[in-house]
Design a protein around this nucleic acid. Structure first.
Length: 809
RNA sequence: GCUGGUGUGGUGGAAUGGCAGACGCGUCGGACUCAAAAUCCGAUGUUGGUGACAACGUGUGGGUUCAAGUCCCACCACCAGCACCA
């Protein structure tokens, strides 16, 4: 068969007259399969696209054959930096390059032969989509989940512009290499922290890879402890510290405030002022990467002020240090050098007192300082003898009773900064009025103007578009006003696209609530693991926020998640132009065809693992499909029918049923490599059978038909061709996946291994349906076994039906 | 440092606690052929033995069990993510 010609033929026929379509009338039986949509880059589909889209399509096809009403849409995450950077380099407008790239990619995607539902296609850069992205911003705003505040951003003083984190390389600007500094700018945030707790607890019920759930838990960083009030010794005020180890409070010998802490300038003593000032300026210069480096020495300066340890009234020094983060907890920590490695270093360096208050709970522990293990409290007054676990609660409760503390849970998760000083994104629908201030623009879409100077020169590109910024009146009072010049992070676009797909052409709303309540959640979501803490977290947040607003009624967007592995270059490195190890699918697709390429990707790797590319074996897959073709032709050739069923026919039937059973389970669990292996075994069985002089044409044909059906998800064009070549009418694509007969998967007789004291000794064949007791009898009465026993009486006989018998002497 | 994962022949990779290495690749041998390609058949964990066979063998060291790649404990290596989060 000329596989490539055959693929072209069926591709064309299927596009003219689709053989499968999602049926909206049958939503009760829906199965929503979703691959993470792709960024429309200028280059061709790479191996990773094929791996993700090709094999997930095989899964979707399997589900269709299992009778599911599968919905598998496709679209493009079309806003974003690369298009804009490309425009800066070449002068080609992002909209033009993006829409062109999408056209090219649509064609390429069709070559895979996947059953994407193009009627529901989404392009996030078009107004009929981003209009609703803006609507989501508006709804979040109305519900207090979108707000503006000053935040530190990466600022390049030479280019005079804000940089995204990815554009900061080792603390320097990627374009001009000058040192990046932190600058406070007013930015829009989404209040994802309101959902921190539910985003953690919700993970428990999700069928997601443990790794990904762990990453999200870690990212959200729940931490239970207490806030403790320290009064200033001079009575001029107080501040709080957050700690998870209140049990060590008696060992607190100093406290450290973040340099940005609001109290710092007020409490600094005159003789320390110049030193403190210099330190704060020094800190402002260092970038965040350096500041947060664990390797960096713990620096800090004394403010000259003293605070009172509320649990024992002791006076302790107040320091400032850059290792204390203003954005976490209260921006202040207590220093307990005896029981915290970092505090220990700090205290040693600055000559601060070290006071032990926890001892080991058993004598044999190494209790040298700093002692960071759990143990028993000592030197802690009334709390002496308590375990650290009891103490960390008891101390806070005691302080709470006198108004000096409370139990508190903190999260590491920060609110989501969504402002981007970039052109190619969805404009933020906010208007600034001189009289009314910040006003939401509900007249959507706020269209992104085409004629914009997007070369970076220090301000947001949209800020220079006079008409966009100024041609607007305040919706409240009608006064001349201005628009927000920033655009939304593209992760906002991708945080809700799965909700739009089922209702992609709805012109009245983002989606119909009743309809998406039926269509969601996504039943199987497949994409790269690199999105664990970004896209996958944002999407969960947006779903929960929309649920609380009443726009939908489910808690999680993606019930079941699979990460495909990464196909590396032949050298074991990630494929990249700089490594020069990029493998293009085109050569293989043009040489062997899309089906062979897909089958090879299926067979060569564990799907979730991936691995280095190697073309060894792609020929073997090609050869194997040729064998399939040969035996299918053989089944429909000139062999006479006969009812003379010999042992080997039963064996063929057994392999057939066992294969259907195994392949069914393999598709279900994305184990495509073993699915192919099982099918190879079936072909081997057909080959043996073919060699027999006596043939049962009916069984042979049924087996060949079944083989084509179970292979169809991985090689749809190839199987369709053979299906139509033989006597069948209609498409194989929508045939039911064959059923298997459990009884038929087993042999009538099985070989069992007889072990003596767990060592293999004798093999014998017994009827498969014997009970364990009967097997034991047969074995013990076997001549060879008797001989081996030599009259000895077994102490114990262990029978594993169908497998082995272990005789213990 | 923390979290998660991985570790099996020359190689990609299989194994609900029950005969490790399925299925392929590669290699070796053979058939067909004038020859080659294609195709087909056979062998292929390591070591010893002509041999039936024996011993060893799933990163290392212990343990549980009649039985461990699989379960438990301690470690090593590599990969990924997070990392001064109080």
């Amino acid at each position: 068969m000329d596989k490539i010609a055959v693929e072209h033929k069926w591709n064309k026929l299927w596009q003219e007259k689709p053989v499968y379509k999602f049926d909206p009338e049958n939503a009760d039986n829906k199965y929503y399969v979703l691959e993470m949509f792709s960024y429309p880059s200028g280059s061709k589909l790479h191996v990773g696209h094929w791996y993700n889209y090709g094999l997930t399509d095989s899964f979707a096809r399997y589900k269709i054959m299992k009778g599911k009403n599968v919905f598998q849409p496709m679209g493009f995450d079309a806003f974003g930096l690369p298009a804009e950077n490309y425009a800066i380099k070449t002068g080609i407008h992002p909209q033009d390059s993006t829409l062109h790239n999408i056209e090219v990619m649509e064609e390429q995607l069709k070559n895979i032969g996947a059953l994407f539902d193009w009627d529901h296609e989404i392009k996030t850069c078009l107004p009929d989509y981003y209009r609703w992205t803006q609507w989501i911003f508006a709804e979040l705003y109305k519900h207090g989940l979108a707000y503006r505040k000053k935040a530190p951003v990466n600022w390049c003083p030479s280019c005079n512009t804000v940089l995204a984190n990815e554009q900061v390389i080792d603390g320097h600007c990627e374009r001009c290499d000058s040192q990046v500094i932190k600058k406070d700018l007013t930015q829009w945030f989404f209040k994802i922290t309101d959902y921190a707790e539910e985003l953690i607890t919700g993970l428990d019920e999700l069928d997601w890879p443990e790794k990904t759930k762990a990453m999200q838990r870690n990212w959200i960083g729940k931490s239970q402890g207490g806030e403790i009030v320290f009064d200033l010794a001079d009575g001029s005020g107080s501040f709080k510290v957050f700690t998870t180890r209140a049990d060590t409070l008696f060992g607190c010998t100093y406290v450290v405030l973040a340099p940005e802490h609001p109290l710092v300038s007020a409490i600094t003593a005159p003789e320390h002022r110049s030193e403190v000032q210099a330190y704060i300026e020094e800190v402002a210069k260092t970038n965040e990467i350096e500041r947060l480096s664990t390797a960096k020495e713990k620096t800090g300066v004394f403010t000259g002020a003293y605070a009172v340890n509320p649990v024992n009234g002791e006076k302790v020094q107040v320091w400032i240090g850059d290792y204390v983060l203003s954005s976490y907890g209260t921006g202040a920590v207590m220093g307990v050098p005896s029981h915290d490695a970092r505090d220990y270093k700090f205290a040693q360096k600055h000559g601060l007192q070290i006071k032990r208050v926890i001892r080991g709970s058993t004598a044999d522990v190494d209790d040298s300082l700093p002692f960071t293990e759990h143990g028993i409290m000592c030197n802690s007054g009334e709390f002496d003898g308590m375990t650290t676990e009891e103490g960390r609660i008891a101390v806070v409760k005691k302080l709470a009773s006198v108004g000096k503390g409370e139990l508190k849970t903190n999260y590491r998760l920060r609110d989501w900064l969504v402002s981007r000083q970039r052109y190619w994104g969805a404009p933020i629908p906010i208007i600034y009025c001189p009289h009314c201030g910040e006003v939401l623009d509900e007249n959507l879409p706020v269209c992104l103007p085409y004629d914009v100077e997007f070369r970076p020169d220090g301000t947001s590109p949209l800020a220079k578009h006079h008409k966009f910024i100024h041609d607007v009146k305040c919706p409240k009072c009608g006064a001349p006003a201005t628009r927000d010049p920033d655009t939304l992070d593209t992760f906002v676009c991708s945080s809700w696209y799965y909700l739009r797909y089922p209702d992609a052409h709805n012109g009245d709303k983002a989606f119909d609530t009743e309809w998406i309540d039926k269509m969601l959640p996504v039943d199987k979501y497949v994409g790269g693991a690199e999105h664990a803490c970004m896209h996958l977290l944002y999407a969960r947040f947006i779903t929960k926020a929309l649920r609380d607003m009443g726009y939908l009624h489910f808690d999680e967007p993606f019930k079941s998640l699979v990460h495909q592995g990464v196909i590396l270059g032949p050298d074991g490195n990630r494929m990249s132009k700089s490594h020069g190890n990029v493998v293009s699918p085109d050569y293989y697709v043009n040489t062997y065809g899309a089906d062979v390429f897909r089958c090879y990707l299926a067979f060569g790797f564990r799907y979730i693992e991936g691995g280095p590319w190697s073309e060894d074996g792609i020929k073997a897959i090609n050869k194997w499909l040729d064998r399939v073709e040969r035996y299918v032709h053989c089944a429909y050739g000139s062999y006479p029918s006969t009812d003379n069923v010999a042992h080997d026919e039963r064996e063929l039937d057994r392999v057939r049923h066992a294969t259907i059973k195994a392949v069914d389970a393999d598709y279900e669990s994305f184990s495509f490599n073993t699915a192919v292996a099982r099918m190879m075994e079936l072909v081997n069985a057909l080959a043996k059978y073919d060699a027999l002089p006596v043939k049962n044409a009916k069984l042979y044909r049924e087996t060949a038909d079944d083989l084509l059906k179970i292979l169809c998800p991985l090689a749809p064009h190839f199987c369709e061709e053979l299906w139509s070549e033989t006597v069948h009418s209609g498409s194989i694509v929508t045939e039911r996946f064959p059923e298997f007969d459990e009884k038929a998967t087993k042999l009538a007789e099985t070989e069992i291994l007889v072990q003596f004291n767990s060592r293999p000794k004798v093999r014998l064949t017994v009827d498969a349906d014997l009970s364990p007791k009967e097997v034991e009898n047969v074995v013990l009465n076997d001549e060879r076994v008797k001989e081996a026993l030599a009259g000895a009486t077994p102490k114990k006989v262990i029978v594993i039906p169908g497998r082995l018998v272990n005789i213990i002497l």
